[in-house]
């Protein structure tokens, strides 16, 4: 397996690993900010996978000049930009809401935010 392919698969594996770590963190952490962090982690993993989906081994980055003829698919990279921007916005909102919610309940523990249930 060439280095390119190694890179190719390790990118997918890293992405998936980050997603799984993120989900594990989301499910097991109790502190609201840690959950936010876990989400960001998973988000990063997802973005990696998204980039991976357009990755073609042995091709250059899609910066078009005369010398480059074979580039990777530029589309996912464009999409990832959108996704990252949205991810930042969501993460910011999450942290804000989380901080305010923990002020309201007097604790940043998500187990204490169970007023609404059943």
């Amino acid at each position: 397996m060439s280095a390119e392919y190694l890179f190719y698969w390790s990118m997918a594996a890293t992405g998936l690993g980050l997603v799984l770590i993120g989900l594990w963190g989301v499910l097991t952490r109790k502190h609201i900010l840690r959950i936010a962090l876990a989400f960001t982690l998973a988000d990063t993993g997802v973005n990696l996978i998204l980039v991976w989906s357009g990755f073609l081994p042995n091709r250059a980055a899609p910066i078009i000049d005369s010398s480059v003829t074979t580039v990777v698919d530029p589309l996912p990279q464009a999409l990832v930009l959108t996704s990252i921007v949205i991810g930042v916005a969501v993460a910011a909102l999450f942290v804000v809401v989380g901080v305010l919610a923990s002020r309201k309940s007097g604790s940043a523990d998500i187990r204490h935010m169970k007023e609404l249930r059943w």
């Binding site: 989301v26 998973a42 991810g87 969501v90 989380g98 919610a101 609404l116």
Partner: peptide
Amino acid sequence: RWEAAIKVALVSGLVTI
């Protein structure tokens, strides 16, 4: 409102992933 918002945020985070 905070609690409701945080739950929506949690779920939409997962949905995004």
